[in-house]
Design a protein around this nucleic acid. Sequence first.
DNA 1: ACCTGAACACCGTTCAAGT
DNA 2: ACCTGAACACCGTTCAAGT
Lengths: 246, 246
Amino acid sequence: MEPRGQRSGRTGRPPRLSQEAILVAAQRILDTEGPERLSMRRLAREMSSTAMALYHHVQDKDELLLLLLDAHARRYPRPVLPSDPHTRLLASAQVLHDLLADCPWIAEVLSFDDFVSESALWIVENIVDAAVECGMALEDAVYAYRVIWHYTAGVLAIRAGRERVQARAERPEHREHALEFLDSVDFPRLNAVGRRWAGLTARDDHRKGLEAVVAGLLEQKAGSGAGETAAVAGAGAEAVRGCPCC
Amino acid sequence: MEPRGQRSGRTGRPPRLSQEAILVAAQRILDTEGPERLSMRRLAREMSSTAMALYHHVQDKDELLLLLLDAHARRYPRPVLPSDPHTRLLASAQVLHDLLADCPWIAEVLSFDDFVSESALWIVENIVDAAVECGMALEDAVYAYRVIWHYTAGVLAIRAGRERVQARAERPEHREHALEFLDSVDFPRLNAVGRRWAGLTARDDHRKGLEAVVAGLLEQKAGSGAGETAAVAGAGAEAVRGCPCC
DNA sequence: ACCTGAACACCGTTCAAGT
DNA sequence: ACCTGAACACCGTTCAAGT
């Protein structure tokens, strides 16, 4: 909890490094050279120190990444969220995405925990709360949060994966080949899609899907009377539930 | 496309290694020692060869992982899918998940492409086709696939992340601490959830969320008349769309 | 208490040489 | 054509020693 840098006893040599300074230097490497270049050794070099000195201020690399995430979340401006529950559910889920979208190294740290980071817990609280105010039971609201989190994590992980590949090899022919390949394959729907697939790889993928996910979650809560969900556990033979309000 | 192992010219030394054999050995390491132990050097040792010999049969480690995924998809039994479009949409999305759930190393290879792997394209085709038969425009159907894929990827990535942490450190106190922490924090909803959070981390997370996602996607298509989605691009101030059929 | 240097046990990949 | 050995440029982390 309390950074080891600031002690009160003032014995021994004064520290040259501090967790604060380490996080700043790490963030600088992240920004200028990308997440794949951030290593304990590289970071130590950045600070004109040795890799081992870092271990006096962070437990290991994983903790470093977690601290980095937490610091980012702490810096992130807390927006005023709408009061209408449905809109707030959407808006807070969007904030979750936007906050994490700035952390391309997030994929390396995905789900040490289900709640992203202590400094981002207010977002989780908002999502769960909004879901409850939308009429969901607390358990369902928590589940809704997790579905939203999974969707968001998927968007982020795939985006990070793509950026990783693009960063390492500057070859757009890769993508070219992939699209020509879609034409050559023997699946009518995919052939029809063909090159149009490329246009769909926009950076703001996330939003429309999020709306659908939220809408589906809200619809589901309306149709959950008895233990229906238990009945639809099989892979391919469950009934189609109609719209619950007609 | 064609494996380099089988040539026709029969010149030079007969090959000791083959792509086939490499994939088998790699899969063995994956199964017995886990994905974090699969390295080119470890694999070479498994085959009583050198790391460099492998590079005559695969381009690099990424290609190896992709080939592994493809081989798995090829082996995977092709289930009979229901004919009802909604049910088929759900069932084929479930197959996508189930197929990939067996590949814990999938997170390392996430989204080299948007379509998972050539041998799994029939699943993508089925999802898109079912979505179209549900009444969606082709573009929307492709987008629906991508939302489903993102959700699925998130579930898998987070599951992989958790397994990675658990494998490396056999300390359940980590999770214990995380849950006590939920009690101590100052967010009413999260306090109320408290320890019940743990019960939600089941392996079959995926299903109920998938149903919600699919329901939401189908609902969205019903409500997409003009360019409504463009209007709701802002972060927190869009209108709540009512149920489209009432 | 804080930091260093050397070492351990690894990585993926390139390159020149062998058969 | 297929494979080897040595080398390059890295990793995260431990441990004993220094100030």
